[in-house]
Simulated scan of single mutants.
Amino acid sequence: MKRILIIDGQYLFRLSLQTVLRELYTDCEIVEAESIGSALELLRAEIFDLVILDIEIENHTGIRMIEFVSRISILTSVIIFTSAHEHVHAERYVLVGAKGFIQKSAKREEVVGAMSAVLNGRHYVSNNVHKLLLNGRPVYNVREPRLSDREREVMQLILQGKLTKEIAGILQIQGNTVSTYKANIFRKMRVNNVLDLAKKVSVD
């Protein structure tokens, strides 16, 4: 029997995803967590075959969650299921250990294919991302300078509406360090404020 943990802050999304998963695996056991805190407690106490993670869930960065899962269980696969744009995030999350990356806007057939692939030990990214990787091209938009992993973590939290103090607490770094990362992000992305940054990421 497959044991699956869904980590997502949206109740209706968790409910709809459960429906799809039960159609795919009728005997699977599905557990939900709406916060990282409750997810960590479950992961410390139980073993799961698959963790489905939204990297935009409040007060966390997905990179650290993947690292945590990898430390406590080498048998658990992680698939990122998010509305965050794959051209910004997919390559990086796959490189740090995610077995798959799929967007919430994907059609049902793609969702089923992605879950099936990862649960059967394979990797999954969209056809578009796969083609770019095969061609040796970076997934991120070549028109913009590449952000470091830490800068992308900070950018993700900025786009969630977090303030400098909150970001410092989540990432356990100094506030002035966050400000430096923020300045670097704005400079590299060629924007002057958070609204312009959100538009840039959405368009790219």
Rank of each mutant, 00 (worst) to 15 (best):
G62N: 02
E86N: 02
N192V: 11
L197M: 10
V51D: 10
A39E: 09
R64L: 00
M65N: 06
A117C: 08
D196W: 06
T177K: 09
L15W: 10
I74E: 14
N135I: 03
V94N: 05
L40P: 00
R150A: 03
C28M: 00
I79F: 00
D196H: 15
M189L: 01
D54W: 05
I36W: 04
G161S: 08
I79Y: 05
A98Y: 14
K104P: 01
I6C: 08
G169D: 12
K200P: 09
N192Q: 12
I55T: 01
A106W: 13
N128Y: 07
V129W: 01
F68L: 07
E34I: 05
A90R: 09
K2Q: 05
V118D: 05
E32R: 00
N127K: 10
L15A: 10
E144W: 11
S148D: 11
E29Q: 04
G161T: 01
G9D: 15
R122M: 08
D149Y: 02
M65Q: 09
R190Q: 06
A90N: 05
S16C: 01
R108K: 13
T82G: 08
T180Y: 15
C28W: 05
V154Y: 06
Y181V: 13
S70I: 00
L75E: 15
R44C: 04
G113P: 04
T26Y: 03
G100V: 04
A198W: 07
T180S: 12
V139C: 13
E110D: 15
Q172R: 15
N176E: 14
R3D: 07
T61V: 07
I79Q: 08
T82R: 04
